[in-house]
């Protein structure tokens, strides 16, 4: 079982590599990948440096090109993919069927991983991507429960990678258009959800209001911790009741399930968070490295160490973690 870690910058990449990541995934500095943030991601020069650093230490490097190009952007996306191929990445992480086709046709030697943005939730869907584009691995959406992952794993034609830790999307990834409905950017079109350019903070008396393109997403009383206004994690009104109508601001942490994932033959666990700091990359990678090593050594008696859980809790959004869909506590 492999540990796949995020890096939004060269220092983050080095931190993840030093802390024991088996692979890191990075993206170009534009909207060809699903973490388009100002100042984040890599120029080609930094990519080369990062790859050299990682290779010397036996760590593989994947390139995320997991947004959906429209005709006006097609040449840019395919040129970027071709550049990634020339740079010699160990795998390309792709979602769009057109780009998968391009990669399979022109760069057949580079492994293709299906991004979580490809929205494959069954072994039938995986068979489609495998047959049409020769993918060797797929990242499963965070909507599936353990039973469902077990069903997929039992029939999957490709290696599976699952999310272990980080921000939690509760909508099926790759088919969530909520962000472009309120702003003009979505994960699919340009790799952004609830983009910072559309966020406005306003003090109203003792309260702090968080708006996204003018829409009030949340209002925090003076003593409340204010979180980033990700649109599905705000407080809204439904028939007069005000509450987190879609989801609470929490992070995913599946460490308790690591032995089961190991038993299912899941090939890799993925950490979310290319937008986070080098310190985050390093600390999360180190914690999961220790956990994976222990589970490999003795899956039967594995229990997460309290200090690991404490570290991960401190690195989580809102200081809260959840097992997410894995155990379906809301069912």
């Amino acid at each position: 079982m492999e540990l796949v870690c995020p890096a939004g910058s060269l220092p983050a990449l080095k931190a993840a590599v030093d802390a024991g990541a088996d692979a890191v995934y990075i993206g170009f500095r534009d909207h060809t990948n699903a973490r388009q943030f100002a100042g984040l991601n890599f120029t080609e020069k930094r990519m080369r440096e990062g790859m050299e650093y990682a290779r010397r230490r036996g760590t593989r490097v994947f390139c995320a090109l997991n947004t959906y190009p429209q005709p006006a952007g097609w040449k840019h996306w395919t040129a970027t993919l071709d550049r990634a191929a020339d740079l010699g990445f160990d795998a390309l992480i792709l979602a769009d069927m057109g780009l998968l086709d391009h990669a399979a046709r022109y760069h057949p030697g580079i492994p293709r991983h299906l991004s979580v943005q490809g929205s494959a939730t069954s072994h039938e869907a995986l068979r489609f991507y495998h047959r049409e584009f020769g993918i060797s691995r797929a990242v499963l959406p965070r909507v599936l429960s353990m039973d469902q992952v077990r069903q997929v794993a039992g029939h999957s034609p490709v290696e599976l990678e699952v999310f272990a830790f980080g921000s939690l999307c509760i909508m099926a990834e790759g088919r969530c258009y909520l962000s472009s409905y309120l702003t003009d950017e979505s994960p699919n079109t340009c790799g952004a959800c609830s983009p910072a350019k559309a966020v406005r903070w306003e003090e109203k008396g003792d309260d702090l209001e968080a708006r996204l393109n003018g829409v009030l997403i949340d209002r925090f009383a003076g003593d409340e911790q204010a979180g980033y206004p990700t649109l599905c994690k705000g407080r809204f009104e439904v028939e007069g009741a005000v509450y987190h109508a879609i989801e609470e601001p929490t992070s995913l942490n599946t460490m308790d399930l690591l032995p089961e994932l190991h038993r299912l033959g899941v090939s890799a666990v993925k950490i979310e968070g290319r937008q986070r700091s080098p310190a985050y990359s390093g600390q999360v990678a180190g914690t999961w490295r220790a956990a994976i090593d222990r589970v490999k050594a003795d899956p039967e008696t594995f229990e997460p160490a309290p200090e690991w859980q404490r570290t991960l809790g401190e690195l989580s959004e809102g200081g809260q973690t959840t097992l997410g869909a894995w155990t379906r506590s809301w069912k």
Binding site: I170, A172, C176, Y181, E247, A325, W330, K331
Partner: peptide
């Protein structure tokens, strides 16, 4: 416009019922 799909049910959540 259909904009998103989840394994969770938001109507059940409003009613405080498990899915």
């Amino acid at each position: 416009l259909p904009l998103a799909w989840s394994s969770r049910c938001f109507t059940a959540r409003y009613y405080g019922k498990p899915k």
